[in-house]
Amino acid sequence: MKEYQSYDLRTAAAALSLITMIYYFIQSHTDSCYQPVIVVLLLLAALCENLSLFNRADFLPMAAAMCLGVCFGLMLYYVLPSFSDLWNQVNFIGGNTTAYFIYLGAILVSFLFAEAGAA
């Protein structure tokens, strides 16, 4: 991979992490499902990616990807019960499943960008 491609991917990962964090922060408060650790991990990921753009420390892109990976796993843990409602066609656990899908999707895409950019 060319250096500029890696740079672009890391920039994209940082930007998407930041946007996801802002969206999550606002939306999750509305849905009363806010978890500070998600915000912290997204913020760390964005920070690491940004630093990696100016600092050639090799571990920074990987650290960002690690944060996003852990963040995805945690998010899955928080929202899986709500998805069971979709499966069972009931309104049992509740929750804003549309927003949850967006969180998961955005974090996963950020992770993939970070992964690719870390190469």
């Binding site: 992964e115 870390a118 190469a119």
Partner: peptide, 26 residues
């Protein structure tokens, strides 16, 4: 080799966290 672990380790972290989360739910 370095690149391989750089890529695989975050993936393992993702899978590990997902697995632990799912385990907790189970």
């Amino acid at each position: 080799k370095k690149n391989i672990w750089k890529r695989l380790t975050p993936l393992f972290a993702l899978l590990l966290t997902s697995a632990i989360g799912s385990s907790l739910l189970l």
